[in-house]
Amino acid sequence: MSEKPEQTICDAIGILVRAGILDYNGHASLRISDDQFLINTGASNRAAMTPDQLCRVDVQGVAQGADRPPNEVHLHAAIYRARPDGQAVVHGHPKWTTLFTLTETPIPVVMPQACLIAQLPVYDQSHSISTVDRAEAMAACMGQRPGVLLAGHGSVFATTTLQEAVALAIYAEQNAERAYRAAALGQPNAIARRDWPAYQQTLNKPGLFQKCWDFHLTERI
């Protein structure tokens, strides 16, 4: 794990771009105090992130310098206000999970790691989360869950570390892709709901999130 929060955010964005979860849009943030967080700027090059492409924002969504945050900065601010224990937020536009939300099709749990993010709530509007009202509605939809899917738009994950948020975003996308491709061959053999708690207990561990992070970070070099 990087020592400096600025580099941790840059690493997170690099990982998510290469995993197909962020593209030329999308963002990752990390809380640095009770009332402020760091986030990549709206103009940042997600494929070549450097610390100078970050800005400081307060939990009301107000930039604390000259650099302009992304249009959806309120998405992050609303989560930090609603969840004082939340330390990290990622928002991207993954292909496979978004395909399911476009058709209101439930995503079956077909890989063990997906038990950690099974049956995420779906925010039923596809518009940009660029206003306070929309952001608060989305945060209310997510509640205390680790993430929320945005119908026809993307995904959001909010956890205590960026390593966990990034790992959950990757798990969700891998599971959705496997479920989609399996459906082309027949009925996917989903993991039974009664078995989810056992997988959750086994897989909800910082060391495993770090393992996922380290693999994808190394893969991009």
Rank of each mutant, 00 (worst) to 15 (best):
Q144T: 10
V132W: 01
D124W: 01
V122N: 08
C115F: 09
C115K: 08
H127D: 10
A137H: 11
S126I: 02
A118R: 08
E136V: 05
M138D: 15
Q119F: 06
C115M: 09
A118M: 07
H127V: 04
V132L: 06
M138F: 12
M142T: 12
D124Q: 07
S128R: 02
S130N: 09
C141H: 12
A139I: 09
Q125N: 08
C141P: 15
V132S: 04
M142C: 13
H127M: 05
Y123A: 06
Q125C: 05
P121Y: 02
R134G: 10
A140F: 03
S126M: 05
P112G: 02
M142P: 14
I129Y: 00
H127N: 07
I117C: 13
L120T: 12
Q113A: 13
D133T: 11
E136H: 08
A118P: 11
D133F: 01
Q119M: 07
S130L: 01
V109G: 10
S128T: 00
V109D: 12
A114G: 11
Q119T: 06
M142V: 11
A140L: 09
S126P: 12
M138E: 15
V132C: 02
A118F: 05
M142G: 13
D124Y: 00
P112R: 05
D133L: 05
H127C: 06
A118I: 08
V122W: 03
A114T: 04
M138P: 15
A139N: 13
I117G: 10
M138L: 15
V122P: 13
M138Y: 14
D124L: 01
A137T: 09
